[in-house]
Simulated assay, not measured.
Amino acid sequence: METIIKIRNLNKYYGSNRVLKDINLDINKGEIIGYIGANGAGKSTTVKIMLGLIEEYSGSVEIFGEKIVENKSNYKRRIGYIPETADMYENLTPREYLTFIGSLYGMSYDDIDEKALKLMELFGIQDVYDGRINSFSKGMKQKILIIASLINDPDILFLDEPLSGIDANSVLVFKEVLKELAKKGKTIFYSSHIMEVVEKLSDRIILLNDGQIVADGNMESLNTELKEGSLEGIFNKLTGFDDHEDIAKEIVSTISRGESHERL
């Protein structure tokens, strides 16, 4: 298999806080990677380093066979990114926004415009192609971000909670899009808290806990090793979070205290 991302001894500090601790990863062409961990585990930091958004770190990150510190712009033409939330130019229309994004990848206006309108149609929002983004719902804005990430036909797609806010039908479509992209040799790096989605989509799952990789494998191998039956169970076991049921009972007990109120 062709290794498309290679990370060696990656460490990142914020002040005295060591967020990433000797991360070593080889990610192959055509893999769908589920990258999971609790808040603060280091997931977003890892992704932002690979995107070139964070430059102060120790260790080595190679993408497409080149160290990203030595190839700061060329590799970015071959990647796409869907953030959970993004600062969009909301006074623009989707036509203006998407043609601007496409131009950053060196695409021609006509090519971007044609492709963007078709993708808007496939996501069911072609009627607002010339509407102002600031009037859109969260789900519609998320669809625009998805289209922007795909417009340049990227070889690697980085996803950070990409399904946030979009409707159920579009979720189904997008899941199939990821599978089709992987078949074409595209690499998907998927970071999410939604365990069911990661479990169903990923052919390889990497679990980060306190800045360290504590599991790396497919669901079958992880289940064989840990015998938990689900990704949620594996996550809870490896992160040491096993008191969720007790906490839930305490929450319900707390909100049930006090005087009962007669319901009308």
Rank of each mutant, 00 (worst) to 15 (best):
residue 35 Y to C: 08
residue 35 Y to A: 09
residue 35 Y to L: 15
residue 35 Y to F: 15
residue 36 I to R: 06
residue 37 G to Q: 04
residue 37 G to S: 03
residue 37 G to L: 03
residue 38 A to C: 03
residue 38 A to Q: 12
residue 38 A to N: 11
residue 39 N to S: 07
residue 39 N to M: 03
residue 40 G to L: 06
residue 40 G to Y: 03
residue 40 G to F: 08
residue 40 G to D: 11
residue 41 A to K: 04
residue 41 A to T: 05
residue 41 A to R: 03
residue 41 A to V: 00
residue 41 A to I: 04
residue 41 A to C: 05
residue 42 G to K: 00
residue 42 G to Y: 01
residue 42 G to M: 01
residue 42 G to P: 00
residue 43 K to S: 06
residue 43 K to I: 01
residue 43 K to V: 01
residue 44 S to A: 00
residue 44 S to G: 00
residue 44 S to V: 00
residue 44 S to L: 03
residue 44 S to Y: 01
residue 45 T to Q: 04
residue 46 T to N: 06
residue 46 T to Q: 01
residue 46 T to P: 00
residue 47 V to L: 15
residue 47 V to N: 13
residue 48 K to V: 07
residue 48 K to P: 12
residue 48 K to D: 15
residue 48 K to H: 14
residue 48 K to W: 11
residue 49 I to Q: 05
residue 50 M to H: 02
residue 50 M to T: 02
residue 51 L to F: 08
residue 51 L to R: 11
residue 51 L to Y: 08
residue 52 G to L: 02
residue 52 G to I: 00
residue 52 G to S: 03
residue 52 G to K: 06
residue 53 L to T: 08
residue 53 L to E: 15
residue 53 L to D: 14
residue 54 I to S: 11
residue 55 E to I: 08
residue 55 E to N: 15
residue 55 E to F: 07
residue 56 E to R: 13
residue 56 E to T: 13
residue 56 E to F: 10
residue 56 E to A: 14
residue 56 E to G: 13
residue 56 E to W: 08
residue 56 E to L: 13
residue 57 Y to C: 13
residue 57 Y to V: 09
residue 57 Y to E: 15
residue 58 S to I: 09
residue 58 S to H: 08
residue 58 S to F: 06
residue 59 G to H: 09
residue 59 G to Y: 07
residue 59 G to L: 09
residue 60 S to A: 12
residue 60 S to W: 05
residue 60 S to P: 06
residue 60 S to H: 10
residue 60 S to G: 06
residue 61 V to L: 02
residue 61 V to F: 01
residue 62 E to S: 09
residue 62 E to Y: 06
residue 62 E to I: 04
residue 63 I to A: 02
residue 63 I to R: 03
residue 63 I to Q: 05
residue 63 I to G: 03
residue 63 I to D: 05
residue 63 I to W: 04
residue 64 F to M: 12
residue 64 F to W: 11
residue 64 F to G: 11
residue 64 F to K: 10
residue 64 F to A: 11
residue 64 F to Y: 12
residue 65 G to D: 14
residue 65 G to E: 11
residue 65 G to A: 10
residue 66 E to V: 11
residue 66 E to D: 15
residue 66 E to C: 13
residue 67 K to I: 10
residue 67 K to C: 14
residue 67 K to P: 11
residue 67 K to E: 15
residue 68 I to Q: 07
residue 68 I to F: 07
residue 69 V to G: 10
residue 69 V to S: 15
residue 69 V to Y: 15
residue 69 V to P: 08
residue 70 E to Y: 12
residue 70 E to N: 15
residue 70 E to S: 14
residue 71 N to E: 08
residue 71 N to Q: 06
residue 71 N to D: 15
residue 72 K to F: 01
residue 73 S to R: 11
residue 73 S to E: 14
residue 73 S to C: 04
residue 73 S to M: 10
residue 73 S to T: 11
residue 73 S to V: 07
